[in-house]
Design a protein around this nucleic acid. Sequence first.
DNA 1: TGCTATAGAGCAAACGTTTGCATTCCGACA
DNA 2: TGTCGGAATGCAAACGTTTGCTCTATAGCA
Lengths: 340, 340
Amino acid sequence: MEHITLKDIAKVANVSYATVSRALSGSKQISEATRQRVLKICHEMGYTTDYVARAMVMRSTRTIGLIVTNVNNPFMSEMANYVEQHARAKGFDIMLCNSSHDLEQEQQVFRLLVGRRVDGIIILPAGHESFDLLSPYMNRVPTIFISGNSRERPVNYVSVDNYAGSVLGTEYLIGLGHRNILYFGRRQGSDTHSFRAKGFADTCEKHGITPRYLDNPCPTTSIQNGYQLASQLFSKKNLDITAVFASSDTNALGVIKAADEAGIKVPQQLSILGFDNISYSDLPKIDLTTVEQPKEAMAAFAVETIVQHIRGGEEGCRQEVMAPRIVIRKSCLPIKTHKS
Amino acid sequence: MEHITLKDIAKVANVSYATVSRALSGSKQISEATRQRVLKICHEMGYTTDYVARAMVMRSTRTIGLIVTNVNNPFMSEMANYVEQHARAKGFDIMLCNSSHDLEQEQQVFRLLVGRRVDGIIILPAGHESFDLLSPYMNRVPTIFISGNSRERPVNYVSVDNYAGSVLGTEYLIGLGHRNILYFGRRQGSDTHSFRAKGFADTCEKHGITPRYLDNPCPTTSIQNGYQLASQLFSKKNLDITAVFASSDTNALGVIKAADEAGIKVPQQLSILGFDNISYSDLPKIDLTTVEQPKEAMAAFAVETIVQHIRGGEEGCRQEVMAPRIVIRKSCLPIKTHKS
DNA sequence: TGCTATAGAGCAAACGTTTGCATTCCGACA
DNA sequence: TGTCGGAATGCAAACGTTTGCTCTATAGCA
């Protein structure tokens, strides 16, 4: 368990440890003969650079902190995966933290990452209060919010265009002939969801349709709460809606489950449209039509932004709102083919 | 972006920086009055401990490296989640790396983690060669393999009992009346899968049934390759099997997809049993009956093992093989209710 | 031969902590 | 009053690097 250090190598090679360091770093001020000799010894003795010590003097850890609400959530794990790949490609490691949807814990891990001297932090915030709670620490380290609600705030930011996505989805449903559409899982207090709800409302009104909503009282969105909400909904008699636009894919999955149990056939009797395009949605028998977030592009942008800041340029904030697209699978049908 | 150090605090408080350090660390050898005064100043100036510097002198980073093949894989992300939770509860952070199923990259990130002086490494190996390739570095840092194929090797190890799991699953299917069972996705070169296949074979023979196999030539298992394999299978005439025991849940999902397309009703015409119990399996309309791996217990054991080693005790290897259980959902039916 | 430029190597500071040891101060006790 | 003990604090080394500066040869040139 003993670590070989530069000094150990230096002793064997009979040079100063500065020379060893230079041999390793590819410095010009060392003869090729010495370099080869030193490198050989390093290899033989199994030397590995101590990045902790290097970080001390270089004042950089080559590490990016990633805070997600919960890796065990398809959207998050996909984002984590993309972030990891892009960061590694640029020579950065990822330190992963869960906030568990808890603002307190989020703050705690943020401070922790600052203390660990990560070079930057990418965060998928736990709530819309995240920015205010975190901002006292944000001047310590380049930070970017993904998919949060921080637009119009002085902070690096990347997100899908939630409003445009909702318009896209609603237009699609209306194009299919639906007029009785329920926006499922509207949430107060989340800008993301406000944008989505507004896109729906505006599009309905544009087509002379009265928008209808089912509110989600929970602060987070999950299959579970989608299921509960939908079960209540389906227990009512004379349900006259022909399509559901769920505010998230997880909610949509909950709706599918409840519909299944209530004997409502999807999509024959009820069309369901989701938002996010999580990997679950592509599963057989699920085949959820949904509005997609460009996850990889968002991850790439986030990493890129952090790297730019580290390089020292980039004084202002980078804010980017990305275009969504709709991915059509099998959970929505034209109204004519519905049978009630 | 300037960091406040102990020295800055010391200057303001008009004490030596050793005193500040002691105030922070809760040392006994400092007066309560001074401690309070120093702590107040630390708070006012927004001091945060530099863990990099501390790691240098303490020779511990309080970080555990976690290597998975790919976070964006339900089994892996669930494991990552549990590992993160348990590690954090014990005061350790997680540094996450993907090996991307690549032995070369796995080796690379392992060395990287060693260089970063993580206190331990938890690895879900990329292949059965992983142990041999990694062992030269493993004396540098406590390491534990999860779910690999390293039993009987001198290494910390935790896994589900794959053989017992297969027996469990096969008995269940036979108990349902099935006699024409196909073991789907057998793979050579993976001990995990050898154990699973053997459990199936032994149980079949015990009941006087001839085991049947469909081999998977791919080194990794996915929905995609399950789908391709199953499509070929279902294109044949007179399919006489009534149940499929898939070697993994992802493969099972591929089978479901192919069955769907071939017009074979699951479970009415064909029962499907999986292995792993990934989160996808619980989805509506999927409802896959499957043999579960005790993921949280495995994660907890792994973290516990690392912590024990760090504490200095624990010289030998800890090896644990955990009991599987079957979770019954809706993808398997008794043979009598099948209609062909 | 003498001078200078330059390549190659070493010295030592710095990064921000923790901690063993030395020092100071003060009160208590003989 | 002198000595001792202990509490509170300071000093400085150590952790393993990187790198600016210094020093020493050696080669090139006149």
